[in-house]
Design a protein around this nucleic acid. Sequence first.
DNA 1: CTGAAAGCGCTTACAG
DNA 2: CTGAAAGCGCTTACAG
Lengths: 343, 343
Amino acid sequence: MTRKPKATSIDIAHRAGVSQATVSRVLRGSPLVNAQTRKRVEDVARELNYKVDRHASSLRTQRSGTLALLLFEDPTPDDSHINPFFLSMLGSITRACSRQGQDLLVSFQQLSDDWHADYEDSMKADGLILLGYGDYVLYRDKLDDMVERGTHFVRWGAVLPDQPGISIGCDNYQGGRLVAEHLIDGGRRRIAFLGDASSHYPEFLERYRGCNDALAATGGSIDPALQVDAETSEEAGHAAACELLRRGAPFDAVFAASDLIAIGAMRALGEQGLRIPEDVAVVGFDDIPTARFARPSLTTIAQDTTRAGQLLVETLMQLVRDEPATGTILPVSLVVRRSSDPA
Amino acid sequence: MTRKPKATSIDIAHRAGVSQATVSRVLRGSPLVNAQTRKRVEDVARELNYKVDRHASSLRTQRSGTLALLLFEDPTPDDSHINPFFLSMLGSITRACSRQGQDLLVSFQQLSDDWHADYEDSMKADGLILLGYGDYVLYRDKLDDMVERGTHFVRWGAVLPDQPGISIGCDNYQGGRLVAEHLIDGGRRRIAFLGDASSHYPEFLERYRGCNDALAATGGSIDPALQVDAETSEEAGHAAACELLRRGAPFDAVFAASDLIAIGAMRALGEQGLRIPEDVAVVGFDDIPTARFARPSLTTIAQDTTRAGQLLVETLMQLVRDEPATGTILPVSLVVRRSSDPA
DNA sequence: CTGAAAGCGCTTACAG
DNA sequence: CTGAAAGCGCTTACAG
């Protein structure tokens, strides 16, 4: 149970009969080392299980080789209920990092934390990936602050003009359009929107706008009485649908700003004896795994999380290397399932 | 966009009119600093946004203040489909780490990787948390190896005698018993088990044994014709249920070794026109979020992931501090839903 | 192609 | 209670 003392580059140097500097060169892959010398050092290093000390190396180079993923969440009562969509992003970000030879630090953050200080000032990470539905207005100041301090960061979210820093996101507007066009095809005209549709939640607002614009092409629009705020949770979706029903305005379709909201809404609608999709079509957004298994299975907008994760990491690395980088809007696709079948 | 040069402890020392050593003492919370001096240093540090350089500190103390979470997965075709149960564990581990002031490195691992070398030898992490359903026989060698090298690690999984290192897990055996007793109460006797029930998957084996022992109390047992291997995925569950049906042996209940398997199995049973729970009761294990929303909603065994995450982190920290530590078995509870209702 | 040497920014015995 | 100094283990100009 006692740990063997760790080998250092000096140990390797002694055994290989070279200087410590040469050991370092070999391990960094420097081209100016004789092939034979290189082999000798590599053999000894392997034999002694030698690994470069990350802290010594980072202290010297001023690079940590680590990125930090900051998950920003609406406060949730239960620790373990994370929006599954972010978890899928987490998976692809994790893999993208390992392909890029970067380590990944993961953390849940509050708006009150000082991300720059916590990660870049302390050299824990070379850059930050920001993920989460939060109130954009509240954290926009934070973003400005980070830009001013030169923090390297990329953000998953709405990609709009005049945003601080670099954002990568899906085509929320187009997603909204696709949903509305699909519902219109199915003969629906009175579309309710569950989710905040203000500048506080730009992603949701874009989804709302896309939907509304498609409706406008038919001469309609979203009745304000059919829009109810909801944060992204099953409970909030349930509550929002109840509120919608309470208002009494007629509707034949529900477009929920996220799948979690949609699933909660379906439960509420079912409790009131409404049949889905016969009486009300329901569509979500995100295509979380649960959407397939919901009752009825949920029509939704799928985002390419694999590509998204790659892009976030690659773009952030460009920033870290001081290369030019830009935001990206990723295409979305409509996944039609039972909840919106034209019956 | 240019980053301001980072402040160092020397900068703080100059401004505060003390030595660099004193700055370090203040920031480490050393008790032997005069209160006035302390205040002066703290003020300056705050003003300059000073944060201790993690690498310099770790290099000196030989402690990284970081834990690594290694997720070990069955190889999956799709990057983004991680078992939701692990994601819930990830959430609670992340929070437990931040409560303990530890950073968390997250990574997906292959059996072929050398975890010790990658994390402890390079000083990236002080200890490892191992999570994942893998073939236990294959990675048991690895565990032995880590114990021998003095790696600090805890493992989520079956807690059994003579295992290398420290394991924390839920009471799989009791979970199996609870499932069987519930099914027996509902009048079921021909219980099929979907999942590997060998020493390669000790957690599943325990679940199987618990179920079988409860059945034994009624004079029965699990018919070998009713056990079909399956890894933890919806697809594998579907395939296993198809195989079960193909065999033709009668059964009135399915106990799936995980919820993912159960959900796939329910789909297969439904495709064959079997009604759940009228014709066949189905029970899973894990209580992933999808279980609630499945059609019908899935009876399952819930594990306390919040407590599990805390225990994993706390136990690992004991190991890191060379304090005595032991494994733990966490209680489980049965969550009865529609899929097993005695109709 | 290789070595000797400086220095990254801390922490902590040691001396006072 | 405070400071001067050594040293953690690397990387990389500099000199040869």
